[in-house]
């Protein structure tokens, strides 16, 4: 049986022993960095989307459900999100020569008053530049999502949304981000990454 009598001071450590701990510490830190990268890859990996007709190239979060069958260029939804499905949507609308972003925002709001419950604009901010320094306007809003199956029992969800509007060559690009109000802040990182990868041509 190998045993060591406890003395009054710490035993002197050999070079190898100290090296073992340093290497273990270094390995652990390195492994945590790898873990962080894996986390970023898992959370924020993207799928490329390109629409030559609309002149849009984007990177949307991988494994979000892609849909281009509606009245929009495309829409992606995080179907694995429990509760309201976090959504990013890009839409193009024609705009007249005299049309301003403000008038478009008003038109959008009027449409939403007709279709969304408890729709409320929080603020309109003209400070979000898009890719290629395209000037844009941001509108933040909330509503109660009541889109439901009448045969099920669902409670409305408070949804926070952000629209970014940019007028571009006779068209207005509307980039929309929607998320459950409780997860909006954490999910917003997806939208920021999406915006950083968005290109117009």
């Amino acid at each position: 049986m190998t045993f060591i009598e406890l003395g009054s001071g710490s035993p002197d450590l050999s070079y190898r022993q100290r090296a073992s701990h340093v290497i273990a510490l270094a390995f652990a830190v390195f492994a945590l960095v790898i873990g962080y990268n894996l986390r970023n890859t898992g959370l924020f990996s993207t799928t490329r989307y390109e629409n030559v007709e609309a002149g849009i190239r984007a990177e949307y979060p991988r494994n979000w459900l892609f849909d281009n069958q509606g009245d929009y260029v495309f829409r992606v939804r995080n179907m694995t999100r429990v509760g309201f499905k976090t959504t990013i949507q890009v839409e193009l609308r024609p705009v007249g020569a005299a049309g301003s972003t403000r008038s478009i925002l008003d038109a959008i709001s009027l449409e939403r008053f007709q279709s969304l419950a408890a729709y409320q604009v929080i603020n309109v901010d003209a400070s979000t530049p898009l890719a290629d320094d395209i000037e844009s306007v941001t509108m933040a809003y909330t509503y109660a999502d009541t889109d439901r199956d009448p045969f099920l029992q669902s409670i409305p969800t408070v949804v926070r949304g952000v629209d970014i509007l940019a007028v571009r060559g006779g068209q207005v690009v509307i980039i929309t981000f929607l998320a459950d109000a409780t997860t909006f802040e954490s999910d917003y990182a997806f939208f920021e990454r999406f915006l950083s990868g968005l290109e117009f041509r």
């Binding site: 991988r62 494994n63 979000w64 459900l65 892609f66 849909d67 281009n68 069958q69 179907m79 499905k85 439901r148 199956d149 045969f151 099920l152 029992q153 669902s154 409670i155």
Partner: peptide, 20 residues
């Protein structure tokens, strides 16, 4: 590949987990 065109039908559970 998470494309809506490949989805036949979709359901989301209600507050009690029921779906249809």
């Amino acid at each position: 590949d998470w494309n809506q065109s490949k989805v036949y039908a979709l359901a989301v559970t209600d507050q009690n987990g029921f779906f249809e």
